[in-house]
Design a protein around this nucleic acid. Sequence first.
DNA 1: TTGTACGCGTTATCAG
DNA 2: CTGATAACGCGTACAA
Lengths: 340, 340
Amino acid sequence: MRPTTKDLAKAAGVSLATVDRVLNGRSGVRQKTVDAVNEAITRIGFERNQVAATLARQRGYRFGFVVPRSGDEFLSVIIKHISEFDQASRAEMIQTKIVRIDEHDPHRAARTLSRLSASEYDGIAIMAPETPQIRDALYRMRERGIQTVAIVSNQQEEDGQSFVGIDNVAAGATAGRLMARFLGTQSGDILVLAETMQSRDSLERRLGFDRIMSPGYPQFHALPTLETHGYPERTKLVLENAFAAHPDIVGLYIMGSEARLAIECARKLNPDKKLITIAHERTPSTEQALRDNTLDALINQDPGHIVRSAIRTLRAKCENRETLASQERIRIEILISENL
Amino acid sequence: MRPTTKDLAKAAGVSLATVDRVLNGRSGVRQKTVDAVNEAITRIGFERNQVAATLARQRGYRFGFVVPRSGDEFLSVIIKHISEFDQASRAEMIQTKIVRIDEHDPHRAARTLSRLSASEYDGIAIMAPETPQIRDALYRMRERGIQTVAIVSNQQEEDGQSFVGIDNVAAGATAGRLMARFLGTQSGDILVLAETMQSRDSLERRLGFDRIMSPGYPQFHALPTLETHGYPERTKLVLENAFAAHPDIVGLYIMGSEARLAIECARKLNPDKKLITIAHERTPSTEQALRDNTLDALINQDPGHIVRSAIRTLRAKCENRETLASQERIRIEILISENL
DNA sequence: TTGTACGCGTTATCAG
DNA sequence: CTGATAACGCGTACAA
């Protein structure tokens, strides 16, 4: 049988309460006692039983997912996975709620975050673009004792363990390599589309894309990124202009997560020639596009994995232990119609 | 607060013990009482707290991974993940052991399996080719009350929920499509290599590969599968013969999981021409091949995911509940050097 | 600064 | 067939 807190208390010559204090880093214990307990821990090989610990806390774990109020198909897929997980994990004493923020108004968003209290949440996973206000709000949240983790869009580099998502530079590079290989012996211009180049995700993807394209494939010319701002009319307009100005377009790289529109437009504007088209994020519509061959490849980050990984990360932080790094690394998936 | 067994007992007008009997399907309860408890369950919305249930069992969960005694790099990666998981999940009261079987002697293997008792194991994950002896042994294991799940190689269709691994037909198709697209406008023969065509995995991969190649790309001709039987000399020999007989080889599809040898041989035999090469399973050596460009793509099934998924599946079976299907589906990953 | 005693929600072991 | 009651290993008031 594995040693328990009782064994540990006996081995260290203290009471259960003191063992608990040391184990959970609470104050009010003499350094000498702390040392004695720690010594006993290694001596008898004590390891805390998380199952018992979770049960003993009156409440289970309460986590919140902060997501944009308005969003694209990818967001709804994420949300679907959150509620799916919530249902499945109630028996494990994990509760998950969704908190909406106004991503266009950083101050309002920050205010919403500031209202999240430690008495309601043990941890928060946030999916939001990086702004000073948000970063600040997160910092204060951690001070209040709420664990945080960023998902999908990275918030900052400083804290290595607290981002769950893909490396967007590598994702862009992956798209670039596939584009080049699928184009084969052709040559010409490549259209690059984003909702906005303000976002770090798009910048990084573009960077990665160019890093492959520019040095390795002089026969292709990736045009400056076109911004759609998520508006259908604007998407149509920029694509029209682009096709008019560049008669030699052979490829289309859609960096944003709303690919449906762009694919449709491009097909209408260019019905005779088959463009190699690569987009990001698996959603019902990109999946359909892959199936009917209007899309050649999809770069995806598994939303279910992201959600579960975020929760595992938060939980590990609550119990202040390490996570299994290999498990939490989100893969840059390449999807074609055969491996959907 | 969620209703507990106490609430349930009160609501049903019985004792805790009876509630437990009904909940865990034990015998010795009148049908009328069973019905009353079940009615109360739905009425008050009772849901069992798994954390408490796990704690209350004296022992935690004890799972075994049955794997071949001898094996390739992929096997050692799997084993690495098993022990990694074992370490990380001790705190969650899950114990994982590795059991070796002689995959070349089905009878001996079956005997080893027959010695696995329910007093030692709650569940067994098995990675082994499908033979009548093994299938039988598994059947008897389930009768003994040990949960089972097959990993990597499917055992049979009958039980939908108990295979954790990829669809090998789809994996072969994925390889085929990539091969065709990477070859582009070239034409010629494609070499297909396997350790043996006795195994169902290889057969299925070949089937999927041809399903894409034959109808869609008449400019390519996939040669009959060559068998290496895992021997270096034999690999060298069959490749030499193939290159001599077919001067027009443009592609190499390595279906088996020991790709290192084949890649090396092919490169030596064919130093002037770049073959499009696709293999299966990420291992230190295939990863290296991808990096130094001797491999164009890798079809992979995440071994870490397989291990964790197998354990989640076994645990769910022990607690007789459903698993989250979306979580347990193993992806057919496409790896290139950019998304390693 | 340290210790005692009880509770968390379930399972297991008795007795009836 | 059914019911009390003691664990399981840890957290947490409250007392000292």
